[in-house]
Computed example of a mutant assay.
Amino acid sequence: MEDFSKELTFKTSRSSGAGGQNVNKVETAVTVLWNVEKSEFFNDDQKSLITSKLKNRINADGYLFMTVSESRTQLMNKNKAIEKIQDIVAQSLIVPKKRYATKPSKAQKQKRLDTKKKLSDKKENRKFRY
């Protein structure tokens, strides 16, 4: 897959959660933004595929965004954000193989009927007879 990291823009913010003084004064959380429609690395078919598969992550302005605050440093969060956004874009470009309908074989049908017959016989033998 092509490296489109040059098209990414970054915003920083303060991370939430535990961490004490470091969390309260340092902007370590990184939000990565990428405009899918204005990308020069993908053709129109790929852009439409990305847009359709990642529509829940794309905002009204057409930006795919992701916020990462896993690490205590801004640089590590930035690298992780780049890695994650490239992974989800790569996953969205995978086209699943078309499934062809198949029928069960004669052996499979016979095996199913045999197991049904065995179960039926087992339950029939449980009945109380005089």
Rank of each mutant, 00 (worst) to 15 (best):
S105V: 05
N125Q: 14
V95T: 15
L33I: 09
D114E: 13
D61W: 03
F42V: 01
I88W: 00
R112V: 01
T31M: 08
T67P: 02
W34N: 01
K98F: 07
M76D: 10
K47F: 05
S52K: 12
I58E: 05
K118T: 02
S120K: 10
V26R: 06
L64H: 02
Y100V: 15
A18Q: 13
N56W: 11
F65L: 14
V89L: 05
G17K: 06
Q74C: 03
R72G: 03
V89G: 03
A101M: 08
E124P: 00
R72C: 01
N125M: 14
N59I: 08
V26F: 00
K98H: 05
K111G: 04
K25D: 11
V30I: 15
N59C: 09
A18E: 03
L119A: 14
V30C: 01
P104A: 04
N24D: 07
T28R: 08
N43T: 12
K103Y: 10
R99D: 13
N24Q: 12
E40G: 08
T73S: 12
K97G: 08
L113V: 07
V26P: 00
L64S: 01
N24W: 06
K116V: 09
N59W: 02
K111Y: 12
I58H: 00
S52N: 15
K118V: 04
I85T: 01
R99F: 08
K98V: 02
L54A: 07
S15Y: 10
D87L: 15
K80R: 11
D121V: 08
E40C: 01
S48E: 14
S71Q: 14
E27Y: 03
A101G: 09
E83Q: 14
S16K: 15
V89Q: 06
K123P: 01
V89M: 02
D61V: 02
N24A: 13
K123G: 00
G20W: 09
N43E: 08
I50A: 00
L75W: 03
A101R: 14
